[in-house]
Computed example of a mutant assay.
Amino acid sequence: MIKNLTKNLACFAVAISGATAVGAQTTLRIQNHLGQSSPYGVAIQQFVEDVATMSDGTLQIEMFYSSSVVPTTETFDAVKNGILDCDMTNGGYQVGKNAAFQFVADTMGGYETPIQLLSWVYQGGGKEAINELYGDYGMTFVGSHVGGQESLNSSRPLTGVADLENFKFRSPPGMESDIFASLGAKPVVMDFTEIITALESGIIDGADASTLATNLSIGIYDVAKHTTYPGFHSMSQDHLACRTSVWNSLSDQHKRIIEVAERSLALEVMMSTLIQNGEAQRKLPEMGVTAYDWSAEDRASFRNAAQAAWQEWGAKSPEAAELVQSHVDFLQRIGLLD
């Protein structure tokens, strides 16, 4: 009898411990730099809901939009230091730490479509190469998402390379500033959230912000009446990166849920950007906005300047050189480079 009682108590203890493990809730604090109602913001909210649903509520995301906890550029360090758990901004903001972060975010003039770039990340060795870099900072790269080519915006015409002369515009930190400066522009590095105010006050003539649809949603075309479309200069991918200690503390199930939700986010962002860019394009004429599709010659001039910058930036650190070579190898593999 005592033997049976002991056995039953042991089984009860296992059942209780299992229920506790399943029922326990984990919450991740994540910051992104986009508005909740923006095209990307809507897709990110779906990511939050997907994680909760797939985990049956055991994994929750507390998402902070519009860099509401710390400035965008400080998100990565806020995660490292325990203020946040994960960063859903952009690796390009960390180029001051290592030039290699540039080639996590945007090769500039490299890939033509988002699916090509994501193919490098998930099937071309990109994720592994990125994690060699992130690991040095106590961070784990989980995945990335990108909508498509971005559009330059301006308060004056941007018909081609010649119009870049003395063009004072907001640029993200990194290689982009060097490329545009080599073509005569005057890039000004500032936070994404400062763009509208800087345009309204005339501090800048234009801005590299995001895709056509996102630019429209955040009010850029209320101020800047000239834009490039289709885009050609930048296709910057945002990342999901978590503090490694936090990531390693998650169950395999929760890790897989986040990875799958991130891939779903990437697909959602691509599809919605395609549709919303088309819808945005139709609205521009009634707003008095002129769109410029650069010629093949002007695009080639930019691409040549960009590829020259790859080599210069690749020489800045061993990690940068490795990522540049990874991109070059993959671009050759899919036929985009000779």
Rank of each mutant, 00 (worst) to 15 (best):
W294Y: 04
D329I: 10
V328R: 02
A306R: 12
M287K: 15
A315M: 05
S295K: 10
W310M: 05
A305G: 06
H327I: 13
A296M: 11
E319K: 06
V328F: 03
G314E: 03
A305H: 05
G314W: 01
R303Q: 10
E322D: 08
P285E: 10
A291E: 08
A321R: 00
P318M: 06
W310H: 03
V324A: 03
A291T: 13
L284T: 06
P285F: 08
G288V: 13
E286L: 12
E312H: 04
W310V: 00
N304L: 06
A309W: 01
P285V: 06
T290E: 14
E319H: 00
A308R: 11
P318S: 08
A306L: 03
A296H: 07
R299W: 07
E312Y: 09
S326F: 10
G288L: 09
F302E: 04
A315W: 07
D293L: 08
L323E: 01
S326D: 10
E312I: 14
R299H: 10
R303I: 10
V289K: 11
L284K: 09
V328C: 05
A296W: 06
A300E: 15
E297I: 13
T290S: 10
A309S: 15
R299D: 11
V289R: 10
D329A: 15
A309I: 08
F302Y: 14
W294V: 09
P285T: 12
G288Y: 14
A321Y: 00
A300Q: 13
L323N: 05
W313H: 09
D329E: 15
Q307C: 03
G314K: 04
E319D: 08
A306F: 00
M287G: 06
D329M: 04
E322W: 00
D329C: 11
Q307G: 01
V324Q: 08
A308W: 00
Q311K: 05
D329P: 14
T290L: 06
V324H: 03
W310S: 03
G314R: 04
E312R: 14
A315V: 10
W310R: 00
F302H: 14
